[in-house]
Amino acid sequence: MVLKNNTLKPFSENILNFESVEKEVTRISGKLKDDILRVLKRKGAVIGISGGIDSSVTLALAVNALGADKVTGIMLPERDSSPESKELALKLANKFGVQTIEENITGALDGFGCYERRDAAVANVFPEYNPKDYKMKIGINHSGLSQFLPPVFSITIINWEGIEKRKILPVKEYLQIVAASNFKQRSRMSMLYYHAERMHYAMIGTPNKHEVEQGFFVKNGDGGADIMPIAHLYKSQVYQLAEYLEIPREIINRTPTSDTYTAEQTQEEFFFQMPYQEMDLIWYGLENEISADEVGRVLNKKAEEIVLIYNNLRRKQKTTEYLRMAAITY
């Protein structure tokens, strides 16, 4: 079988395994050092750390590139953040010996009306909703994954007794909830640049390949950075680097969450709709024009299902092009 990249590597469940993780870490670290110091002409790196796998690997790569004394980890919790995020971020910073700064952005978000605007839209859908007694989250309907139809978002509210109610989100409320919630990522970006500029450092972004290419980021929010050193890595490759870089085990074992809404929610539930191990292989198959039959054989799925997932991923890529576009100029 000939892949698009003209290699003769047969498709298998191990195809995304690095032959040498060390070599990839050395390559990224070398490039990161050169880009920060020589290309951007900055003295160090600022990274927002959330206790998640992506920001942890990015911080470790920056330390590898520049040394711990030239890297600052910034924790940016807000009212809805899980306390676990801060604990793990501190554990990471201690392990790698970097300075940390904590900036609670709840006040800024209150000023923007982030919570109020979001909660007003939720109450339009569920009149009984109030943020004191209920938690909320939005997510993609799972039923949409295996069809030619685009996914739709639903909203779930959970009351104090744990009773859930779910509805399909109308357009107006969907847009308002997303727009209000995006204040979080955009406020974080502003604060990260404040510290980066104050220290004459570069701001290092933390999205992985899936987040960039499927549009799981906020334009001019977490999608805004000077360098994105892991944006070429599939999620399983991020985990390979995490093992090599000896990221704390609790972070490696933590299920990736959106940490955006008041109710707990995994990234799989919110957006990706399938386990990352499967998504990596299917995305690789799509990019390298590997037949649905072959991908299905390796993943023990029907070729028809792979075709539908290919279509779903192509659609996601197409409908999020706007997020990746630079401003149009004339």
Partner: peptide, 22 residues
């Protein structure tokens, strides 16, 4: 015409149709 398969409507269009028929 297959409005989604042919790219005439996207995901926002789908939600809009659901709202419209309601």
């Amino acid at each position: 015409t297959l409005i989604f398969a042919q790219g005439i409507m996207d995901s926002m269009g789908f939600i809009s149709i659901i709202d419209f028929i309601e």
